[in-house]
Design a protein around this nucleic acid. Structure first.
Length: 594
RNA sequence: GCGCCGUUGGUCCAGUGGUAGGACAGUGGCUUCCCAAGCCACUAGCCCGGGUUCGAUUCCCGGACGGCGCACCA
């Protein structure tokens, strides 16, 4: 399938197109048309069903604009910032920090100000790797991939559009853990837009500046929580491990989730579990598994937070594109927010049995320390506490010495009031680890369209159709009166369409043009079933009937009107058309597909 | 960001220094019993800005957008 054919169909039929065309267009922004928006919503609903409802997780909806402090904590302000230097000779752009690190013994050039990096480039006569021209004097420019904005008027505080929906979950963890009644594991999902000011948006829906993510943050106790791996142990997967990518003849590893986790190919059982869940979900919504794989991130491409990471990739137009990432983020995010934020990003883990421990404590007499040490009294008291925990024997003598700001301070042991107490500990505060399946919704939509795009022949005429799964097709069914010059047919068609809509189905009604033309229109937008009202259905003694045509085969079944809504709903839920045919019998037609 | 190429009805294309034509799609008729049929009519377009010119959709410059390559890509 040529990608341009799909792009043309997507534009013509209302799946998606570049935004703001009347104003010249805006690179990196796409609008989903009526078909695309319905398709995307169905994908999101299917994702919600699997990753929120079926897993017993909870979904939230956080703001897309967040204050700067959040991204200082998350690392996005620094880690998302690329220093680029362009060669004045050949125009090639390079990562300035990487050039400096390669040519000098500077290790973390990214942390340096741009002017210093410029100076280092000049001092070391660093040349353009592409053409050899000197880069000295070329400006080093910052590209932070986050969209900046101002929150409020005047001396407003800086804010950013979130670069991933995950941060909206992490920052609310202290409250979210309350809703989970403080116990692990629990999962929070969010479906919504994220923003990255890409230097060069490309490839239609594949690299956008605003895009939709569906993310699950699974919070776990790394010591005790285990995924229900047996549910997906037998799922057969095609893995592309880092070792295979590095090898010249690297082959796929066709295995099962259970084996891959047992053998350590997939490092985390939690990641393994979600790879299995994800693959089953991808199959359900219509990804062609022959054009699907899980690829492990190479060490160098992992995000600043990721310990181990696998991508789900699909093949579209011969290229492999990332459609989801599965990262074991450890305690990176919650630790950082715990450090930077005001609240505690921990949960209290209750021991099986309360522990009785001896704890060395001090209770310094501040009425003595205050007059003696003035403003340093608090620091002295803190130093005493630290010392008590580390070295209780230091309190054996009459006086005890602690160091504050490099100065030794002597305190009477009586004043420190050292004691060893037996205390009962019921548990401890731990920072949960995070497992993050993160899905690109737009890329999934793109994959589904590419994998559903098919051509064949009907009665010798070539046709294009989208073989979308009934669950995610934008329209559930189309309703046609076979001809419009018979009121019995148009009346019944109106009634059938209204009944189906009342039953919650997305129905398209079409009485324009020949019946074949109307079938083709629906084929092109992937409508799985067409309901046609013909004369045979309104004449005779029996109940009123209609024909139901299956998109992919053009086969037809005659179904009583009273049963229609239930039968179509069952088909949408996954029932086979063949079962319907067995129940009601096929309609003999002379239509040939091949 | 750099380089090359491109941008003409909804879509896909042709064409011109004197403002444009086709195909498909669409709409309204005629026709009407199952797969893009036929006939009639209609709707609808030169990406934006500047320059050259009496006159620019056409030539030149710049921009936007798109494709490909490079770079970048949590």
């Amino acid at each position: 399938m040529a990608g341009s054919d799909l792009a043309e169909l997507a534009k013509r039929r209302g799946f998606f197109f570049g935004s703001n065309g009347a104003y010249g267009g805006t690179a990196g922004f796409y609008t989903f048309g009526p078909q695309g928006a319905a398709l995307k919503r169905n994908v999101e609903d299917a994702w919600r069903d699997r990753f929120t409802l079926k897993e017993g997780n909870r979904e939230i909806e956080a703001p897309t604009v967040m204050p700067e402090a959040v991204f200082e904590a998350s690392g996005h302000l620094e880690g998302f910032d690329d220093m680029l230097v362009a060669c004045g000779e050949c125009g090639a752009s390079h990562r300035a920090d990487h050039l400096v690190e390669d040519a000098t013994d500077v290790e973390d050039a990214e942390a340096l100000p741009g002017e210093e990096v410029e100076a280092l480039i000049a001092d070391h006569d660093i040349a353009c790797p592409a053409c050899g021209a000197p880069l000295s004097g070329e400006p080093v420019e910052d590209f932070n991939l986050m969209f900046a904005t101002d929150i409020g008027p005047g001396d407003s505080q800086p804010g950013y559009l979130r670069p991933e929906t995950a941060q909206g979950i992490f920052v609310e963890f202290p409250r979210l853990k309350e809703y989970a009644r403080g116990s692990l594991p629990f999962g929070i999902t969010q479906i919504g837009p994220a923003y990255r000011n890409e230097i060069s948006p490309r490839g239609g829906l594949l690299r956008l500046r605003e895009f939709t993510q569906a993310e699950l943050e699974q919070f776990i106790d790394p010591e005790t929580d285990e995924p229900p791996l047996d549910r997906v142990a037998d799922v057969a997967v095609r893995l592309y491990p880092a070792t295979a990518q590095a090898a010249d003849d690297g082959d796929y590893l066709d295995t099962t989730i259970g084996e891959a986790v047992d053998e350590g190919v997939i490092g985390s059982p939690w990641v393994g579990y979600y790879l299995g869940v994800a693959q089953e979900w991808y199959e359900r919504v219509g990804v062609d598994l022959d054009r699907f794989r899980f690829r492990q991130h190479l060490a160098g491409e992992r995000a600043h937070y990721a310990a181990d990471c696998w991508d789900a990739e699909s093949e579209v137009d011969g290229d492999w594109i990332e459609i989801a990432g599965f990262a074991y983020r450890g305690d990176y995010d919650l630790s950082k927010h715990d450090e930077y934020g005001d609240d505690a990003f921990t949960v209290f883990k209750r021991y099986d049995e309360p522990k009785t421990v001896e704890r060395a404590t001090v209770d310094p007499d501040m009425s003595v320390l205050g007059p003696e040490f003035g403003g340093d009294a608090g620091a002295v008291a803190a130093a005493l506490e630290t010392l008590a925990a580390r070295d209780p024997d230091a309190f054996a003598d009459e006086t005890v010495t602690v160091e504050v700001d490099g100065e030794p301070r002597e305190v009477d042991a009586d004043v420190a009031d050292f004691s060893v107490e037996e205390v009962t500990e019921n548990g401890e505060h731990i920072t949960p680890h995070v497992v993050e399946p993160s899905f690109g919704v737009g890329r999934t939509v793109q994959t589904l369209l590419a994998h559903a795009y098919e051509t064949d022949e009907v009665d010798g005429e070539e046709r294009t159709f989208l073989s979308l799964r009934p669950e995610i097709a934008p329209t559930d069914a189309a309703v046609f009166p076979l001809v419009t010059n018979d009121e019995r047919l148009t009346d019944l068609a109106d009634r059938v369409a209204a009944d189906l809509r009342a039953a919650g189905l997305a129905v398209s009604y079409d009485d324009s043009g020949s019946i074949g033309r109307r079938y083709r229109r629906q084929d092109e937008v992937g409508t799985p079933f067409c309901v046609t009202i013909d004369r045979d259905g309104v004449e005779g003694d029996g109940p009123e009937t209609v024909t139901v045509r299956e998109r992919d085969t053009a086969a037809q079944v005659r179904v009583p009107v009273d049963e229609l809504a239930d039968e179509l709903a069952a088909l949408r839920s996954g029932d086979e058309f063949a079962a319907l045919r067995d129940r009601y019998g096929a309609v003999a037609t002379d239509v040939e597909t091949n």
